[in-house]
Amino acid sequence: MAESRPETRAIRRLGAGMALLLVGGGLFVPGFASTDNLLDVVTSAGIAGLFALGLLMVLIAGELDISFTAVASIAQFGLALLFTRGDLGWASAILISGGIGLALGLVNAAVVTWLRAPPIITTIALLNVYGGGLALLSRGEMLYDFPVWFSDAAVFRVFGLPVSLQVLLLAVATAATLVLGRTHWGLTLRAAGGNREAALRQGVGGVAVAAFAYGWLGFLSGIAGLAQAQLLQAVTPGSLIGRELDVVAATILGGASLAGGRGSVGGTLLGVLFIALIGNVLVLSGLSPYWHQAVTGTVLIVAVAPFLRGRRRAAIPVGAS
């Protein structure tokens, strides 16, 4: 595919940056080059990874959603509430949190497509409605003391099989790769994202694309909420809110574009890992954790700027709606 070139370039750049970090970290930062530490990085990047893989689909479809952290918070809160009512199993836990996420994702799709305002504005509004609503209903009370089966070790269970967060992430990544690469849907998504105007004129097709993309993000947000609740064994309403822009940054670092049509699963995972690695190196090397944001922002700008410049001839992606 001709348009996969920018994605490949993003991956190559990220790979080089990553190699630099790994070698530098391994040489100069004590405790960095252990398998355990690197596994921890993957785990801590796992939640962001789930969000990012969800967001990727939305970006490819030429849309944007930043309310997903609030969606995840609602899903995990709903789940935790049900925990206090009765004993669920893994299957129902996954269904419930994923279901809540999916439902809210579909709401987002409906609102954004119908309003036809820039999705960044619409979803900032939705983020506040969801987040504020959750804070009102929950009064911020933290829920904890979950059933034993939920806290046992660091695993999910799907159909009785233990699944670690890393494996879950890989499974989702595989699913996303298949959807994007092997199905008719993947092509439709890319086409819709590449040319929003045409997709809008398609009517029903456009709506279906949006429903799929936002629904996918919503579902994965629900799962991310579940994963975070499992990891921490506690649900603080809204503890995830405020991280949405970091996820957007990671996904864009991975080669996705707000103009739609572009982005790859591998690049997205690399983007998330790269940001997590920067944080890890900063903490382990004893540097101020406050460097993190400045470094990440600079990397984002540097990575995106030259990368887009020589891109396509189509004049201006900005405000050309």
Binding site: P30, G31, S34, D36, N37, D40, S44, Q228, L231, L232, A234, T236, S239, L240, N280, V283, L284, G286, S288, P289
Partner: peptide, 26 residues
């Protein structure tokens, strides 16, 4: 082991940083 880590108000951050501290200082 280091200067103070500013993560005490967030469970997420303190958990993540705790793991990293345990790694760096067995």
């Amino acid at each position: 082991v280091a200067d103070r880590y500013p993560v005490g108000e967030s469970l997420d951050d303190s958990y993540k940083t705790s793991q990293e501290i345990l790694r760096a200082h067995p």
